[in-house]
Design a protein around this nucleic acid. Structure first.
Lengths: 186, 186
DNA sequence: CGCTATTATGTAAGTCTTGACATATAGTAC
DNA sequence: GTACTATATGTCAAGACTTACATAATAGCG
């Protein structure tokens, strides 16, 4: 089983979805912490079905092309539940902006500050978007957010990681930009 | 040019290094935001040399095997300087722990809490390590840390990202664990 | 003398991921 | 009519990355 396989099972444990639906999910929401293109999703679904973790049924549609809707099996749910509490395999993170920061001493200070001010803005905007989403969840889902056995609790937990991440990213970009601009002012 | 290529150029802009040295750098320090195995580094060095971005000279050693020491060229430094101020290509982040969190509602609360308490500890330890490093830098490097044209400033900037990241990670893990444990207590 | 570790450089096989190619239906805009 | 967008499913080639294989010098240990 690949991590992408578990990502797909995680989505199918909540609702039945087609390959196209899964692709859309990976673009939005879930895409903030795991993503894949349809060219990766369709073959993976075939492998999952071969392994007995999902089954599909063909839905015939008049106004649109027919589609295959996938459903998680008991076996699929079993492996997902096992995987979910195993400590993740630590693999080297790759952050291109930090890599650039590591060589930023070579750059023109104005251009460098512009880069980090731009990235700061990007992260601030993403943060604002996440915070709106959280406010909506708190209003709409209420008590469900406090129940660890409810999927909505899990959705909110993942969102909270996004909020903390974006806040940290924006804070760091601001710090780097200020440090560079500060020097220029002196 | 690949991102790994720029990562290597970033290291070579600071000092001359062999493929082996680069591999060691990617394991430690730099490895926190970019990493690669020697099997990826040696072919990449060959490509960089073919492109005229680096040159090597063979150093004969008596007590150890001979080595090739690589040096960045003016052209290599040129492309590095250009790359460093370009906004990074945004690519989907992949975080296995967040993916697990998204399906945590399926897990036994005790096991789920144990997972996040364990990860919280891991991040706290990494944070402590980074903070020690920062204290050492501030004591040892002093004024250099405030100069944006100094490599030490850039090293410190990258480290600050690590500190903010680990602090956020630990905070989030604690929040998730508490949320799960809180429910059990009620 | 063999075993292991460190330094040192490479190749090969396989997996993961992206980007391009490919097809088909239906609705909307020009 | 033509072009474009959304829905829907696939394949293929190439690149990025990991794991394992492969070699070689020296030093230290038992």
């Amino acid at each position: 089983m690949t991590t992408l396989g578990y990502a797909i099972l995680g989505l199918l444990s909540r609702e039945e979805l087609s390959g196209y639906d899964l692709t859309q999910r990976m673009k939005g929401r879930v895409g903030y912490f795991w993503s894949a293109r349809h060219s990766q999703i369709y073959p993976e679904l075939a492998r999952l079905e071969e392994g007995g973790y999902v089954v599909h049924s063909v839905i015939e549609q008049q106004e649109r092309p027919d589609k295959k809707v996938y459903e998680i099996t008991a076996e699929g749910l079993g492996v997902l539940k096992e995987w979910v509490v195993q400590p993740p395999v630590l693999k080297s993170s790759r952050d291109e902006l930090v890599l650039k920061a590591y060589s930023i001493w070579l750059a023109d200070p104005d251009e460098a500050a512009r880069l980090f001010r731009g990235e700061e803005l990007r992260h601030e905007e993403q943060l604002a978007h996440y915070e709106e989403l959280e406010a909506w969840m708190e209003g709409e889902w209420g008590e469900d957010l406090t129940r660890p056995d409810n999927a909505r609790f899990a959705t909110h937990a993942a969102l909270r990681r996004g909020i903390i991440y974006e806040r940290g990213s924006a804070e760091w970009c601001r710090w780097v930009a200020k440090s560079i601009e500060g020097e220029r002012a002196v």
